[in-house]
Amino acid sequence: MENQQEQHIIGYKTLLNVLLLLFVLTGITVGASYLDLGQLNVWLALFIAAIKGTLVLFFFMHMKYEGRALRWSFLGTIFFLFIMISFTFWDVAFR
């Protein structure tokens, strides 16, 4: 049975490298939490979490190798999440 939709296979080594990178980022985010940066602490933690999330999404969840339909629908979801967050804060800020 020939499979025309060639499935992309991610090698074990790539997956292991991603895992190690995730460990390093976990270490960085724990280390950064001991610094007193005021408000910046929150943004830094979220920024590192976003990088870790992107790594999981791209490699463990194969998103890097998916077609347009999945990529754009995912971005659409994030866009709606962004609307939900920003409109909520818009409301809260002007109460």
Partner: peptide, 11 residues
């Protein structure tokens, strides 16, 4: 969990 962890335990 990647987002829960810093929000509750670190921030």
């Amino acid at each position: 969990w990647i987002f829960i962890f810093p929000l509750f335990y670190l921030v």
